[in-house]
Write a protein that binds this DNA or RNA. Structure first.
Length: 327
DNA sequence: AAGGTACGCAACCGCACGGTT
DNA sequence: AAACCGTGCGGTTGCGTACCT
């Protein structure tokens, strides 16, 4: 048995919103607040479905939205967060005040993808387009897209983008593997003892699969590897406190999974968004400082995160955590 | 000037998830 | 346990417009 439709479609308007509809929606939410989207249209006198009202409010009418072009800083932040999170637009948007997931998603598809291609970086994998590693480990997920086929009618199949350990010199991606509850697919870390040759095998075409016929697991094939999926970040004395896991805080319909994600991601996201007064290179802290992987040179880029993921922390700001993650 | 094409963005759709009945 | 509800998310589409020939 399927779900009942969210509204009676034959009685609802579709398409662009009129000024009058906008005003009705704004006035209603001003008076009654957000929520109960299903009943809102009727109560507000709108011939729209609740989802449409919610989307219009969140993406366009909300007063706290930032208008105008994305700044270069925002660009770099989006790129680095995408490297961490993949197409988790809502999580990315949570780190960019005033920006919506839809806006960021559109901006990614129309601007940043092109920008990364211009840098010779595959926007899906954050790897160099002509990377030999990419060609040997994962070609299925790398869609060579040109300006002519960037966004429209292109199924980019990115929801399964994996988190990878990459060569820091050639990538914007971080040195972390996120657990499976964040990515829909597993990222099997394949790093040998010489971290300069760190590789990662991703997706279903990974070593796990290629070895499955022989009945061997990746651990058996690469016994020297640690398959621990998460890497604990170095903890400075003034480590910002992870916002408490408040299981009662589901008033905004935040799922337990989302809260768990936020808990896990907190140090990582903090690392990518705080302005540096102190920089700790993750490579160094992970013991890679003597390898080519570590290109440690804090502040070498505008954001300090383009060449290597540094853990930036600003005590005066981060000691009293207040973030979109905690809303 | 006109027609075709590409682009950008707002909006829609289907699905997943957690909660409730 | 199953059905249903409410909401949020990511992918996709449609349309207005800028650009090109």
């Amino acid at each position: 048995m399927g779900r009942s439709p969210c509204c009676e479609k034959q009685h609802t308007n579709k398409g662009a919103w009129t000024k009058e509809e906008d005003e009705r929606l704004i006035n209603y939410i001003k008076l009654h607040g957000e929520g109960c989207w299903r009943s809102l249209p009727k109560a507000a006198g709108l011939l729209r479905c609740g989802k449409s009202c919610r989307l219009r409010w969140i993406n366009y009418l909300r007063p706290d939205l930032k208008r105008g072009n994305f700044t270069g800083e925002e660009d770099e932040l989006i790129i680095s967060l995408h490297g961490l999170l993949g197409n988790k637009w809502s999580l990315i948007a949570a780190r960019l005040p005033g920006r919506t997931d839809n806006e960021i998603k559109n901006y990614w598809n129309t601007h940043i993808k092109r920008k990364l291609y211009g840098r010779g970086i595959d926007p899906q994998t954050h790897r160099p387009l002509n990377s030999a590693v990419a060609s040997t480990t994962n070609t299925s997920n790398t869609t060579a897209t040109t300006k002519n086929n960037t966004s429209k009618k292109t199924s980019n199949n990115t929801s399964n983008s994996s988190f990878q350990i990459l060569d820091a010199q050639n990538s914007l991606a971080p040195f972390v593997n996120l657990p499976e509850f964040i990515s829909n697919s597993t990222a099997t870390k394949v790093a040998n003892s010489d971290s300069s040759n760190m590789k990662v095998i991703t997706d279903s075409s990974s070593a796990e699969d290629s070895n499955s016929s022989s009945g061997m697991t990746t651990e058996e094939v690469y016994p020297e590897l640690s398959l621990e999926l998460s890497i604990g970040l170095p903890v400075p004395d003034h480590q910002p406190q992870v916002p408490p896991l408040n299981l009662n805080d589901q008033s905004k319909h935040k799922s337990l999974q989302q809260i768990k994600q936020q808990q896990f991601l907190w140090p990582i996201l903090t690392a990518t968004t705080t302005v540096a007064t102190e920089a700790v290179c993750l490579c160094c802290n992970l013991g890679f400082q003597n390898s080519q992987t570590c290109t440690c040179n804090p502040m070498k880029t505008a954001t300090g995160i383009a060449d290597c993921l540094y853990r930036y922390y600003r005590p005066e700001r981060d000691s009293g955590i207040s973030s979109g993650l905690t809303n």
